[in-house]
Structures are given as structure tokens and as C-alpha cells.
Amino acid sequence: MTEAAIEIKGVTKSFRGKAVLDGVDLTVRKGEIYAFLGRNGAGKTTTIQMLLGLLDRDGGEVRVLGLDPKKDAIEIRRRVGYMAEDQTMYGWMKVSEISSFLEPFYPTWNRDLVRKYETQFELDPNQKIKNLSKGQNARLALLLALAHEPELVILDDPTLGLDPIMRKELMRDVIDHLQGAGVTVFFSSHLLYEIEPIADRVAILDGGVIVREETTDALREDVKRFILSESHFTGLPPFEGTLDIKRSENQAAVTVENQKGFTGLLKEHQVSFDRVDLNLDEIFEAYVIGRKEAGSHVPIPSLERVA
């Protein structure tokens, strides 16, 4: 077995008595593109800062490339590339100056690679950082995160504030330069439609825990919506994998995980139904919004909702 790039077990963190992370477990395998999803304020940045040793955890275990960020933060920073959310850099520096400023901190800094990326990313070394566009700023931040040839790259909402073309180009860079080179990529986002094509696996963080960690294909295969008659639905026994229930007129739209199990249940009770494929946005919504409304995974017949 290969060692995991990132391992988080039972991690907790509270701010002023309010639990933000309430026992987070996740594993990122080496070489994979792993998307870390959650609503704004779900604790994505908190988790990422812990991985880099910028923030201490209250409890649980964290390993990044086998190292504990509590003890080996510097070694981790040397081997990991990090692009912060909405990263601000010294505006008065030129593109070339920030590279030479950062170089001494990293024994593995690769100047030729910096030059190569400057050309590929169309960054002018003589330009002042404050004069860069948002897209150029993101590309410079990515360049600086990659210049020391890290084994693992952590990107915190890298596409924030970028227009659709720039977002697509950044994702293309991730696939071409990082996946192509065997680098592990861990990135957070709340834009699901742009995650799905590029992620090997996704994790959904909600309510301080990972509610699902799965390959994108398997997630799509496992979570489906069923349309059936309301009266048939009410007659069914509670189903453990229920994520969301919507009712309108005399129909019920039920979103479940373990759709094979639910299909079996429906067939067993001879209930006719339509099964609908969902996109990642809808699946995400079912987990983070539906789950709360559906209440502890059990259908509540009194829960009315007009579609």
C-alpha cells in the first residue's frame, strides 16, 4: 500500500466554544485530484490551515506526507505548494522580485520552472504585482505554489473571483501541469460544476463532519432521485439513505443514497417509480440542505414542502 498524501482522523476545532469541525475524517491518496466541498463557512479553510500548521487542532490526528503539522510545519511547507484563498502578495514587488524573495525559503526552488511558467502563464517578470489582473494574480499565486516542485499542492478556493474563462484555464493548468506530473492536488471549492470533470474523488464537509467521500462517478451512480406517488411513498417503511424529500400535488420526489437499495425496496413493495439522474450540484444540495430538512435520514410524513 502506498502511503496517503493527507490523512485526517477525528479532527475537532472550536472557535469561542462553537464547534466548526466536529470529528473530520478524510484520506487523500497520492497522485489523486481531491475536491474538498462545502458551503461558505463550513470549515474548509480552517481544515486547510491545519494541514499547513497555520492553525492548531483541538483534537484528532493529522498527517501530511506522513508528517504532523503540529511538529513539522516547516518541513511540510517545504514539500507542499499552497495557494491561499484570495491570496494577496506584496503589490510593490515585480513578478520577478517575489520569486527571488521566496526562493531562499525553499531548498528545491526551480528557477527554470519559474521561467517556464512565466511564459506559459503569460506573466511579465517586470510587471508590478499591484498592476496584475485578478486572473494574472491567481496564476502568479499558482506559479509560486509550484516553483519548489511540491509533491502535494493545496489550493484553497483557487478560482474565487475569476471569470469563467480564467477558471477554466486554471483547471486546465491543474490537469496538465500537476496531474500530468503525478502531483497530488487537494483543493477546496464551492463551484461544483467545475469540480466534477477534474476531480478523482470528492468529499462533502457539512455540519463539521465529512458527510460523504467518494469518487465522482460512484457518487453519481449511488445518489438518485425517485419520483413516485405520494400515497405509495407514505406507505413505505423509513429508508436509511434518504437525503431529501420534496412533495408537490400527489407526487413525492425522494433523493436517496444507496439507490440500489431503495430500488429494491420499491420493487419489493411493488411501487412504480421514475428514477432521475442528478448532477453534482443537485447531489451536493441533497446532502447539505436536504439532509437537515429530511431530518436524521428518516422520512417525516408531516414535512410538507411546496415545489
Binding site: 485530484i33 496538465d176 496531474q179 470533470p197 477534474i198
Partner: peptide
């Protein structure tokens, strides 16, 4: 694989 992944902005494993 690499070219098509790049063109479509899709994971190479896909």
C-alpha cells in the same frame, strides 16, 4: 489522453 484531457478540461483518468 493528455491532449484530450487538456482540451476538455477533464481528469486524465476519465
Amino acid at each position: 489522453v493528455r491532449e484530450l484531457a487538456r482540451e476538455l478540461t477533464v481528469n486524465q483518468n476519465t
